[in-house]
Amino acid sequence: MSGSTEFTIAFSPPLSARLDRYFAEMGQGVNAHRLIRDRRDILLWLNARSDAELARMGLTRDGIPAHVFGDLFG
């Protein structure tokens, strides 16, 4: 072993399904795993917010993926 510890953070099933649906709509050629890994902290932070907190930010739970990756896919 190299001394580094690798770990995986699992998303909740509803968030995982929303991410899958979002990237499926983007079509072929998207490395979703890398993109999700790179932005997992913000995804987890937003997903942990209540619906009321998301609403105050102008977001819905279903809109989290588009918000987090909107700069890439418009």
Rank of each mutant, 00 (worst) to 15 (best):
V68W: 09
L15V: 04
H33A: 15
R39E: 12
A66S: 12
D62R: 11
L44Q: 10
G27D: 05
R37H: 07
I42A: 09
R18Y: 07
M57S: 04
L35F: 00
S4H: 12
I9M: 05
Q28R: 08
A32P: 00
S4K: 14
G74E: 11
G74D: 08
L54E: 04
A10Y: 11
M26I: 02
G58W: 07
V30A: 01
L54A: 10
G70A: 03
G63Y: 07
M57C: 03
P65V: 00
T5C: 10
R34E: 12
R39M: 03
I64W: 08
D20R: 05
D41A: 12
V30W: 00
P65A: 07
E6S: 14
V30Y: 00
L59N: 01
S50Y: 01
N31V: 00
T5R: 14
L43F: 06
L15K: 04
R37S: 15
R40G: 04
L54P: 02
V68L: 09
E6R: 14
S16E: 10
E25S: 05
W45M: 14
R21N: 08
F11N: 09
R39P: 05
T5Y: 11
A52L: 10
A52D: 13
V30D: 00
G58Y: 05
M26T: 01
L19I: 02
A17K: 13
F7K: 12
G70C: 06
L43K: 02
N47M: 03
H67W: 11
A24C: 08
L44S: 11
Y22A: 01
A55L: 12
D41K: 09
T8Q: 11
G29T: 06
T60I: 04
E25C: 02
H67P: 01
R21I: 04
A55Q: 14
F69K: 05
L59Q: 02
F7M: 09
R21H: 11
R21C: 08
F11L: 15
M26W: 00
L19G: 00
W45A: 15
R40W: 06
L35S: 01
L43R: 03
D62I: 08
D71E: 15
T60L: 07
L46V: 08
F69H: 12
G3R: 11
